[in-house]
């Protein structure tokens, strides 16, 4: 039970093509695990599969010791397996704060009756979690704004904050840094590891090698639906397979260096926060 998520042989097929091919992957509790791979490798499909958005054709997914293969997406979310979307998918008609509130509170069958007489349930823990999520994603000043009034990057941060608001046990981030400007990526990158202090484990997909190498405890590399390598950031950085298959030698060097910069940057920020 020290693994929060464990998939074995997970396979997703789209018309004969295996978008995920026998993926074995574990996320230990309280750890930060990354998944990288070129475009179309099947990373989003993997998240879709474990959150119930696409059917799997083989394999199993164990979350918190429970086989979640048969559960509906909302049931998985209620159990603490919460995702973000690569394509945003915010609630466009709700303010930023409301977006978070929706995810933060669950309902009982009688909640609507209490709502009708305006006695909505207030839960201190949930409110605090939402405050924290707004805070950490730097969204305090736009809490009452509509998502459509924000920049693309900040909309992405709203997506992450919404997932955080649900107090997940495992948060699945699908390319949260894509499309962020420098300042926004710093907000994100600088705080990602703080998620771990809030009783959650993190699973990160990203294109930005630097980011992934700098924040993850362990990394999987996916190509054509198959896991082709795994290891600590150090091992991935040095792995020949990865370099060949994915990074391309030169690009790898540059990105690896970027990763180091990011790490140091994080340390700087940490210093400021204290």
């Amino acid at each position: 039970m020290s693994n929060i998520l464990e998939t074995s042989g997970l396979t997703v097929t789209f018309g004969g093509l295996n978008a995920c091919d026998k993926v074995d992957l574990t996320v230990p509790k309280g750890k930060f695990v990354g998944l990288i791979g070129p475009n179309g490798a099947g990373k989003t499909t993997f998240i879709d599969a474990i959150t119930g958005y696409v059917p799997t054709s083989a394999g199993s997914a164990i979350f918190n010791g429970e086989d979640i293969g048969e559960l509906k997406p909302h049931e998985r979310a209620q159990r603490g397996l919460v995702r973000t979307f690569q394509s945003l998918e915010l609630f466009e008609d709700l303010s930023v704060k409301d977006n978070l509130l929706v995810a933060g509170y669950d309902t009982r069958w009688y909640s609507f009756l209490l709502d009708m007489i305006y006695m909505p349930r207030k839960d201190k823990e949930v409110e605090e979690q939402i405050e924290w999520a707004l805070d950490i994603m730097g969204l305090n000043d736009v809490a009452d704004a509509m998502p459509s009034d924000l920049s693309h990057g900040r909309r992405k941060l709203v997506g992450v904050a919404r997932a955080l608001a649900a107090s997940p046990d495992l948060i699945l981030l699908d390319e949260p840094a894509a499309g962020l400007d420098t300042a926004e990526s710093q907000i994100l990158g600088g705080h990602l590891r703080e998620f771990l202090d809030h009783d959650m484990s993190v699973f990160l997909i990203d294109h930005d090698m630097g980011l992934v190498l700098s924040v993850c405890d362990y990394i999987y590399v996916l190509d054509f639906g198959k896991i082709i390598a795994q290891g600590t950031p150090q091992e991935i950085r040095e792995s020949e397979t990865v370099k060949k298959a994915y990074l391309g030698e030169e690009a790898g060097e540059i990105q690896a260096q970027a990763g180091e910069r990011m790490t140091s940057l994080q340390h700087d920020q940490g210093g400021q926060d204290d």
């Binding site: 959150t51 509906k72 997406p73 909302h74 409301d98 509130l101 929706v102 995810a103 309902t107 909640s111």
Partner: peptide, 22 residues
Amino acid sequence: RGNTGRRFLAIRANERAAAAAG
């Protein structure tokens, strides 16, 4: 004003994301 209405509007906006929000 309450959570029920917010949930309704969330569904109106995006059923996929609503499910992801539990």
